[in-house]
Protein backbone atom coordinates (compact mmCIF):
# COMPACT_ATOMS: atom_id res chain seq x y z
CA UNK A 1 0.00 0.00 0.00
CA UNK A 2 1.42 3.31 -1.05
CA UNK A 3 1.97 5.95 1.57
CA UNK A 4 1.03 8.85 -0.65
CA UNK A 5 -1.19 8.26 -3.67
CA UNK A 6 -2.05 11.13 -5.99
CA UNK A 7 -3.90 10.65 -9.26
CA UNK A 8 -4.35 13.30 -11.96
CA UNK A 9 -3.37 16.37 -9.98
CA UNK A 10 -4.03 19.58 -11.90
CA UNK A 11 -3.06 23.07 -10.78
CA UNK A 12 -4.51 26.17 -12.43
CA UNK A 13 -3.57 29.77 -11.75
CA UNK A 14 -5.88 32.76 -12.17
CA UNK A 15 -4.21 35.67 -13.92
CA UNK A 16 -5.41 38.86 -15.59
CA UNK A 17 -5.46 37.12 -18.96
CA UNK A 18 -7.56 34.17 -17.82
CA UNK A 19 -6.94 30.85 -16.16
CA UNK A 20 -3.71 29.08 -17.07
CA UNK A 21 -3.16 25.36 -16.50
CA UNK A 22 0.36 24.84 -15.23
CA UNK A 23 0.50 21.36 -13.75
CA UNK A 24 -1.40 18.99 -15.98
CA UNK A 25 -2.63 15.60 -14.73
CA UNK A 26 0.26 14.38 -12.64
CA UNK A 27 0.19 11.04 -10.84
CA UNK A 28 2.59 10.27 -8.02
CA UNK A 29 2.87 7.35 -5.63
CA UNK A 30 5.50 6.85 -2.99
CA UNK A 31 6.13 4.11 -0.43
CA UNK A 32 7.64 4.46 3.03
CA UNK A 33 11.43 4.59 3.07
CA UNK A 34 11.74 5.38 -0.64
CA UNK A 35 13.24 8.43 -2.30
CA UNK A 36 11.68 10.00 -5.39
CA UNK A 37 13.53 12.66 -7.37
CA UNK A 38 11.70 15.22 -9.51
CA UNK A 39 13.85 16.71 -12.24
CA UNK A 40 13.29 18.87 -15.28
CA UNK A 41 13.81 22.27 -16.83
CA UNK A 42 13.29 25.37 -14.73
CA UNK A 43 9.71 26.55 -15.05
CA UNK A 44 8.26 23.10 -15.65
CA UNK A 45 6.12 23.24 -12.51
CA UNK A 46 8.14 21.11 -10.11
CA UNK A 47 7.85 23.46 -7.15
CA UNK A 48 4.15 23.94 -7.79
CA UNK A 49 3.55 20.20 -7.38
CA UNK A 50 5.12 20.33 -3.93
CA UNK A 51 3.14 23.42 -2.98
CA UNK A 52 -0.02 21.67 -4.17
CA UNK A 53 0.71 18.65 -1.98
CA UNK A 54 1.21 20.92 1.04
CA UNK A 55 -1.73 23.19 -0.01
CA UNK A 56 0.44 26.22 0.57
CA UNK A 57 -1.11 28.56 -1.96
CA UNK A 58 -4.71 29.53 -1.40
CA UNK A 59 -5.69 32.60 -3.34
CA UNK A 60 -5.79 32.61 -7.15
CA UNK A 61 -4.84 28.94 -7.39
CA UNK A 62 -7.25 26.08 -8.16
CA UNK A 63 -6.42 22.46 -7.43
CA UNK A 64 -8.07 19.37 -8.88
CA UNK A 65 -7.32 15.74 -8.19
CA UNK A 66 -9.01 12.43 -8.87
CA UNK A 67 -7.44 10.75 -5.90
CA UNK A 68 -5.46 12.07 -2.95
CA UNK A 69 -4.75 9.46 -0.32
CA UNK A 70 -2.31 9.71 2.55
CA UNK A 71 -1.84 6.46 4.43
CA UNK A 72 -5.33 5.09 3.68
CA UNK A 73 -7.06 8.36 4.55
CA UNK A 74 -8.98 9.79 1.64
CA UNK A 75 -8.24 13.49 1.92
CA UNK A 76 -10.72 14.51 -0.77
CA UNK A 77 -13.67 13.53 1.41
CA UNK A 78 -12.58 15.77 4.29
CA UNK A 79 -13.14 19.47 4.77
CA UNK A 80 -10.24 21.74 3.95
CA UNK A 81 -9.55 22.44 7.63
CA UNK A 82 -9.25 18.74 8.51
CA UNK A 83 -7.23 18.10 5.37
CA UNK A 84 -4.70 20.74 6.30
CA UNK A 85 -4.41 19.30 9.79
CA UNK A 86 -3.69 15.78 8.56
CA UNK A 87 -1.19 17.03 6.01
CA UNK A 88 0.49 19.24 8.58
CA UNK A 89 0.90 16.38 11.02
CA UNK A 90 2.30 13.93 8.52
CA UNK A 91 4.40 15.93 6.10
CA UNK A 92 7.17 18.51 6.30
CA UNK A 93 8.45 20.86 3.65
CA UNK A 94 11.93 22.36 3.29
CA UNK A 95 11.72 25.32 0.94
CA UNK A 96 14.22 26.82 -1.45
CA UNK A 97 16.96 29.07 -0.07
CA UNK A 98 17.33 28.13 3.62
CA UNK A 99 18.58 31.57 4.61
CA UNK A 100 15.42 33.28 3.41
CA UNK A 101 13.00 30.79 4.91
CA UNK A 102 14.28 31.24 8.49
CA UNK A 103 13.00 34.20 10.49
CA UNK A 104 15.82 36.77 10.58
CA UNK A 105 14.67 38.44 13.79
CA UNK A 106 14.53 35.33 16.01
CA UNK A 107 17.29 33.19 17.42
CA UNK A 108 17.55 29.59 16.17
CA UNK A 109 16.63 28.46 19.69
CA UNK A 110 13.26 30.19 19.61
CA UNK A 111 12.48 28.91 16.13
CA UNK A 112 13.29 25.33 17.11
CA UNK A 113 11.09 25.49 20.23
CA UNK A 114 8.26 26.79 18.09
CA UNK A 115 8.10 23.77 15.77
CA UNK A 116 8.50 21.08 18.42
CA UNK A 117 5.26 19.13 18.99
CA UNK A 118 3.32 20.27 22.03
CA UNK A 119 2.23 17.93 24.80
CA UNK A 120 -1.55 17.61 25.15
CA UNK A 121 -3.13 19.53 28.03
CA UNK A 122 -4.48 16.45 29.83
CA UNK A 123 -1.04 14.86 30.23
CA UNK A 124 -0.09 17.15 33.06
CA UNK A 125 2.23 14.65 34.83
CA UNK A 126 4.43 14.52 31.76
CA UNK A 127 4.31 18.28 31.57
CA UNK A 128 5.48 18.70 35.15
CA UNK A 129 8.24 16.14 34.65
CA UNK A 130 9.37 17.92 31.50
CA UNK A 131 9.30 21.27 33.25
CA UNK A 132 11.60 20.00 36.02
CA UNK A 133 14.00 18.20 33.70
CA UNK A 134 14.09 20.98 31.10
CA UNK A 135 13.30 18.49 28.34
CA UNK A 136 12.55 21.17 25.78
CA UNK A 137 16.14 22.21 25.53
CA UNK A 138 17.37 18.62 25.54
CA UNK A 139 15.08 17.64 22.67
CA UNK A 140 16.19 20.67 20.67
CA UNK A 141 19.86 19.81 21.22
CA UNK A 142 19.19 16.17 20.31
CA UNK A 143 17.48 17.31 17.10
CA UNK A 144 20.48 19.45 16.14
CA UNK A 145 22.86 16.58 16.93
CA UNK A 146 20.87 14.21 14.77
CA UNK A 147 21.03 16.60 11.85
CA UNK A 148 24.80 16.77 12.02
CA UNK A 149 25.45 19.91 14.06
CA UNK A 150 28.04 19.38 16.76
CA UNK A 151 28.50 22.90 18.08
CA UNK A 152 24.93 23.26 19.33
CA UNK A 153 25.61 25.96 21.91
CA UNK A 154 26.85 28.43 19.32
CA UNK A 155 24.11 27.62 16.81
CA UNK A 156 21.22 27.82 19.30
CA UNK A 157 22.18 31.32 20.40
CA UNK A 158 22.82 32.84 16.98
CA UNK A 159 20.64 34.52 14.38
CA UNK A 160 20.23 33.08 10.86
CA UNK A 161 22.36 35.86 9.35
CA UNK A 162 25.33 34.71 11.44
CA UNK A 163 25.24 31.18 10.04
CA UNK A 164 26.46 29.80 6.75
CA UNK A 165 24.24 28.24 4.09
CA UNK A 166 24.88 24.63 5.13
CA UNK A 167 24.22 25.32 8.79
CA UNK A 168 20.94 27.01 7.87
CA UNK A 169 20.01 24.04 5.67
CA UNK A 170 20.77 21.60 8.50
CA UNK A 171 18.70 23.66 10.93
CA UNK A 172 15.85 23.65 8.42
CA UNK A 173 16.06 19.86 8.12
CA UNK A 174 16.14 19.53 11.92
CA UNK A 175 13.02 21.69 12.13
CA UNK A 176 11.30 19.65 9.44
CA UNK A 177 12.09 16.37 11.17
CA UNK A 178 11.01 17.60 14.63
CA UNK A 179 7.43 16.43 14.22
CA UNK A 180 8.56 13.01 12.94
CA UNK A 181 6.83 13.26 9.56
CA UNK A 182 6.03 10.34 7.32
CA UNK A 183 6.82 12.30 4.17
CA UNK A 184 9.58 14.85 3.76
CA UNK A 185 9.43 17.23 0.81
CA UNK A 186 12.59 19.08 -0.22
CA UNK A 187 12.80 21.84 -2.82
CA UNK A 188 16.32 22.18 -4.26
CA UNK A 189 18.18 21.35 -1.02
CA UNK A 190 21.67 21.13 -2.47
CA UNK A 191 21.74 23.93 -5.00
CA UNK A 192 24.34 26.68 -4.39
CA UNK A 193 26.03 24.67 -1.63
CA UNK A 194 29.74 23.98 -1.56
CA UNK A 195 31.27 20.66 -2.53
CA UNK A 196 31.65 19.10 0.92
CA UNK A 197 28.33 20.41 2.25
CA UNK A 198 26.28 18.81 -0.55
CA UNK A 199 27.61 15.45 0.46
CA UNK A 200 26.82 16.12 4.13
CA UNK A 201 23.21 17.11 3.41
CA UNK A 202 22.60 14.08 1.17
CA UNK A 203 24.14 11.75 3.75
CA UNK A 204 21.89 13.20 6.44
CA UNK A 205 18.75 12.71 4.34
CA UNK A 206 19.78 9.17 3.46
CA UNK A 207 20.15 8.42 7.17
CA UNK A 208 16.62 9.68 7.88
CA UNK A 209 15.06 7.66 5.09
CA UNK A 210 16.83 4.44 6.14
CA UNK A 211 16.43 4.69 9.92
CA UNK A 212 13.01 6.27 10.27
CA UNK A 213 11.45 4.98 7.01
CA UNK A 214 10.62 8.52 5.96
CA UNK A 215 9.49 8.84 2.36
CA UNK A 216 11.41 11.64 0.65
CA UNK A 217 10.46 13.61 -2.45
CA UNK A 218 13.37 15.73 -3.62
CA UNK A 219 13.50 18.35 -6.37
CA UNK A 220 16.87 18.74 -7.98
CA UNK A 221 18.16 19.80 -11.35
CA UNK A 222 21.56 18.38 -10.64
CA UNK A 223 20.77 14.77 -11.53
CA UNK A 224 24.43 13.77 -11.50
CA UNK A 225 24.72 14.58 -7.78
CA UNK A 226 21.68 12.57 -6.71
CA UNK A 227 22.16 9.66 -9.11
CA UNK A 228 22.80 7.04 -6.44
CA UNK A 229 20.71 8.82 -3.81
CA UNK A 230 17.23 8.48 -5.31
CA UNK A 231 15.48 5.18 -5.97
CA UNK A 232 13.05 6.56 -8.49
CA UNK A 233 13.23 9.42 -10.97
CA UNK A 234 10.42 11.44 -12.52
CA UNK A 235 11.20 13.90 -15.31
CA UNK A 236 8.89 16.84 -15.88
CA UNK A 237 8.46 18.91 -19.00
CA UNK A 238 5.95 21.75 -19.45
CA UNK A 239 3.81 20.69 -16.50
CA UNK A 240 3.63 17.00 -17.30
CA UNK A 241 5.60 14.01 -16.13
CA UNK A 242 7.11 12.72 -19.36
CA UNK A 243 8.89 9.73 -17.92
CA UNK A 244 9.02 8.01 -14.59
CA UNK A 245 10.74 4.87 -13.44
CA UNK A 246 13.47 3.21 -11.47
CA UNK A 247 17.01 4.59 -11.72
CA UNK A 248 18.53 1.61 -13.51
CA UNK A 249 15.81 1.50 -16.13
CA UNK A 250 15.79 5.25 -16.87
CA UNK A 251 19.53 5.80 -17.04
CA UNK A 252 20.15 2.68 -19.09
CA UNK A 253 17.23 2.80 -21.51
CA UNK A 254 15.36 6.12 -21.48
CA UNK A 255 12.20 6.08 -23.59
CA UNK A 256 11.32 9.75 -23.93
CA UNK A 257 13.59 11.94 -26.14
CA UNK A 258 13.69 14.74 -23.53
CA UNK A 259 14.99 12.40 -20.83
CA UNK A 260 17.52 11.03 -23.28
CA UNK A 261 18.80 14.53 -24.08
CA UNK A 262 19.19 15.37 -20.37
CA UNK A 263 21.09 12.15 -19.69
CA UNK A 264 23.29 12.68 -22.74
CA UNK A 265 24.26 16.17 -21.53
CA UNK A 266 24.94 14.83 -18.04
CA UNK A 267 27.15 12.09 -19.42
CA UNK A 268 29.03 14.46 -21.71
CA UNK A 269 29.67 16.90 -18.85
CA UNK A 270 31.03 14.23 -16.54
CA UNK A 271 33.19 12.59 -19.19
CA UNK A 272 36.80 13.29 -18.15
CA UNK A 273 38.18 12.36 -21.56
CA UNK A 274 36.57 15.14 -23.58
CA UNK A 275 38.00 18.38 -22.29
CA UNK A 276 37.43 21.71 -23.98
CA UNK A 277 35.13 20.18 -26.59
CA UNK A 278 31.66 21.26 -27.58
CA UNK A 279 28.76 19.25 -26.19
CA UNK A 280 25.78 18.39 -28.43
CA UNK A 281 22.74 20.11 -26.92
CA UNK A 282 19.00 20.24 -27.43
CA UNK A 283 17.86 23.22 -29.49
CA UNK A 284 14.78 25.35 -29.02
CA UNK A 285 13.15 26.61 -25.86
CA UNK A 286 10.62 25.60 -23.26
CA UNK A 287 7.05 26.44 -24.42
CA UNK A 288 5.10 29.31 -22.90
CA UNK A 289 2.18 28.36 -20.68
CA UNK A 290 -0.11 30.90 -22.35
CA UNK A 291 0.41 29.38 -25.79
CA UNK A 292 0.89 25.66 -25.34
CA UNK A 293 1.44 23.64 -28.51
CA UNK A 294 -1.40 21.35 -29.55
CA UNK A 295 -0.60 17.72 -28.93
CA UNK A 296 2.74 16.59 -27.59
CA UNK A 297 4.38 19.46 -25.74
CA UNK A 298 7.88 18.36 -26.61
CA UNK A 299 6.96 18.11 -30.31
CA UNK A 300 8.57 21.36 -31.44
CA UNK A 301 11.99 20.33 -30.15
CA UNK A 302 11.75 16.62 -30.90
CA UNK A 303 13.72 15.17 -33.80
CA UNK A 304 11.48 12.12 -34.12
CA UNK A 305 8.21 14.10 -34.33
CA UNK A 306 5.71 13.02 -37.01
CA UNK A 307 2.13 13.80 -37.94
CA UNK A 308 0.63 11.76 -35.08
CA UNK A 309 2.36 14.01 -32.57
CA UNK A 310 -0.47 16.53 -33.09
CA UNK A 311 -2.38 14.40 -30.61
CA UNK A 312 -1.49 14.29 -26.95
CA UNK A 313 0.16 10.91 -26.25
CA UNK A 314 -1.25 8.79 -23.46
CA UNK A 315 0.80 7.38 -20.63
CA UNK A 316 2.23 4.01 -21.59
CA UNK A 317 2.94 1.69 -18.71
CA UNK A 318 5.68 -0.87 -19.00
CA UNK A 319 7.32 -3.10 -16.40
CA UNK A 320 9.27 -0.61 -14.34
CA UNK A 321 8.75 2.67 -16.11
CA UNK A 322 6.00 4.79 -17.61
CA UNK A 323 6.34 7.38 -20.35
CA UNK A 324 4.31 9.75 -22.47
CA UNK A 325 5.49 9.43 -26.08
CA UNK A 326 4.26 8.13 -29.44
CA UNK A 327 7.70 6.98 -30.58
CA UNK A 328 9.60 5.63 -27.57
CA UNK A 329 13.32 5.17 -28.08
CA UNK A 330 14.51 1.56 -28.44
CA UNK A 331 16.99 -0.12 -26.11
CA UNK A 332 20.53 1.20 -26.37
CA UNK A 333 19.52 4.44 -28.13
CA UNK A 334 21.55 6.45 -25.63
CA UNK A 335 24.92 5.28 -26.87
CA UNK A 336 24.23 5.38 -30.59
CA UNK A 337 25.17 8.85 -31.84
CA UNK A 338 22.86 10.31 -34.44
Amino acid sequence: MALLDIRNLTVKIKTDEGIITIVDRISLTINAGKILALAGASGSGKSLVMQAIMMLRKDNVIYYADRFKLDETDLLKLSSHQRRRIIGENTSFVMQEPKRSLDPSLKIKAQLYEVMPKIKWYRFFTRIKNFIKNTKKQTAVALLHRSGIKDHRKIMNSYPSQLSDVECQKVMIAMAVASEPKILLLDEPIVNLEIASRFQVLKLLDKYSKNDHTAIIIISNDIASIYNFADEFAFMYAGQIVERGSRDQIFKNPRHPYTASLIRSMMALSDPGQNKKFIPVLKGKHPDYKHMPIGCRFGARCRYAKRICNKMPDITMSKNCQYRCHFPLPDGALNSDD
Binding site: E188, N192, L262, I279
Partner: peptide, 21 residues
Protein backbone atom coordinates in the same frame (compact mmCIF):
# COMPACT_ATOMS: atom_id res chain seq x y z
CA UNK B 1 30.60 34.19 -10.03
CA UNK B 2 28.82 30.83 -9.52
CA UNK B 3 26.71 31.48 -12.58
CA UNK B 4 26.34 28.00 -14.07
CA UNK B 5 25.08 26.05 -11.07
CA UNK B 6 21.33 25.68 -10.40
CA UNK B 7 20.52 24.82 -14.04
CA UNK B 8 19.46 21.55 -15.57
CA UNK B 9 22.10 19.60 -17.54
CA UNK B 10 20.87 20.81 -20.94
CA UNK B 11 21.22 24.47 -20.04
CA UNK B 12 24.55 23.86 -18.33
CA UNK B 13 25.91 22.21 -21.45
CA UNK B 14 24.60 25.11 -23.52
CA UNK B 15 26.33 27.74 -21.39
CA UNK B 16 29.54 25.70 -21.30
CA UNK B 17 29.45 25.58 -25.09
CA UNK B 18 28.96 29.34 -25.26
CA UNK B 19 31.92 30.01 -22.97
CA UNK B 20 34.10 27.65 -25.01
CA UNK B 21 33.11 29.41 -28.21
Amino acid sequence: NKSISSFDPNLRAHICNMMLR
